[in-house]
Nucleic acid binder design. Sequence first.
DNA 1: TTCCAGGCAATAC
DNA 2: GTATTGCATGGA
Length: 216
Amino acid sequence: MNLIKKYEEMLDKFGYQGWWPLVQNGKMEYFPNDYSYPRSFDESFEVCLGAFLTQNNTWRNASSCILNLYNAGKLDVNSVAEMKSEELEKLIRHSRYFKQKAKRVQEFALKWNEVKNYSKNDQSIFREFLLKFNGIGKETADSIMLYAFKKPSFIIDVYTKRFCFDKSLFNTGKLNYEVYKEFFENNLKKDYKLYNEFHALIVILEQRKSQAKLST
DNA sequence: TTCCAGGCAATAC
DNA sequence: GTATTGCATGGA
């Protein structure tokens, strides 16, 4: 079993995914084979917002919320932290559970300086810090670390688990989040660019597979 | 109409 | 420790 080989096959088949998209000139843009984004703490914050908003929701809905914030001139940490919760709820209504998310996003925005400081810390300390937030579980913590702060922290989601199952990378045992995570991290170079692309490719592969199943 | 979409937290057992 | 429930939109 060679994980890198599978990675290269997927890259050949699907190409660079350019995840995570950011608002550029009023629309969502992807950055294939360019891992320099996010390029500022403001852009990092935008990624964090997306990580909250896409929970149990499609990216389509989550991104429309981010564009709403942009169009309202509120797509920055201070605006999010300071605006009335009712206003934020209105702007992110297309994300499911918007009341709960508005509250959690504002709590996060209020502590943004602390988040930035912790991001300079050791990875495990940063992760523990993130996990203490309401609304940040393991998957969201890893998404924030990888896609907002360029830390090599592999994300485990339903697609990753499906990928492991399909490829028979595991066959038995009690599989919790950390087991999957260690499997990838122990078998790959600790490179955020690789983790970034690999996870994006797993998602596109598994999404295409389930779409194919539906249409047959 | 139903079901699901890249979860998390609180509670129950 | 694992299982269940609340959260409460939009699109197929």
